[in-house]
Amino acid sequence: MPIFWGIHAKPPKIWKIVLGLLPFIILVSVYLTASHVRLERNSDDKLLPSIGKMIQAVDGLAFTKDKRKGEYLMLRDTLSSLKRLIIGVLAAAVVGLFLGMNLGVFPGFNALLMPFVTFISIIPSLSLLPILFISFGIDEMGKVILIFWGTFILITRDMYLATKAIHEEQIIKALTLGASQFSIVYKIVLPQIMPRLIETIRLCLGGGWLFLIASEAIAATDGLGYRIFLVRRYMAMDIIIPYVLWITFLGYMMDLILRLIIKWRYSWYVEMRKGG
């Protein structure tokens, strides 16, 4: 049995760990080497700062109070960004869930709104940015709405598809058990598409971060995206790189939490997906 090559390969567990770590090790070593070479030539080089330099920078932003504002800047950036992201994506999830579900269940509602939803889904979200900033101002509202807009269409369409994927037998069966139309929507359809909603949120968070950072880069006074675009002017890679890693870590944690919620709360969904 081959360990690595070909479609019959079955890497043993220890191999999987080693193989999984390999790209990370390569990336870090390439960086360290390149950084070392450049700093050797010019000790003021800003492009590839040393690990020590980055730790110093993080220490200054994360663990020292800012003199002017009396706050920990990195904490403040993180909290502001997370607040925008979570409000935007949650609002998108709620609207997308109810809109998509009703589009899927009620043919009349579908006839009324489906062409419209399809139309607005093609608008590139970022092109709305100036409109949002002009109409909602440059404070929180504009950013939250951009994140909302960028994610809710996808959630709506996915919830519509998830609703459509529920077998007609289930609906008819519920009717023969005396269900009202209200019960069908909220006791049969809604609980069955909830785990799918969480999966969709997982996918949409990537887009959510994109719109968050884009809007913070353009107009903000704090936030993770604001910070990296602010220090870009001074070519402060020692701040940008740790911030990018921090954003990645936050994204990963959110994804992990959502995955665990599905595993704990919706065991039937996990099993059904396995069984096909």
Partner: peptide
């Protein structure tokens, strides 16, 4: 009672 999908999986 259908052949399949008669029960609510959740």
């Amino acid at each position: 009672v259908y052949q399949k999908y008669s029960l609510f999986p959740h």
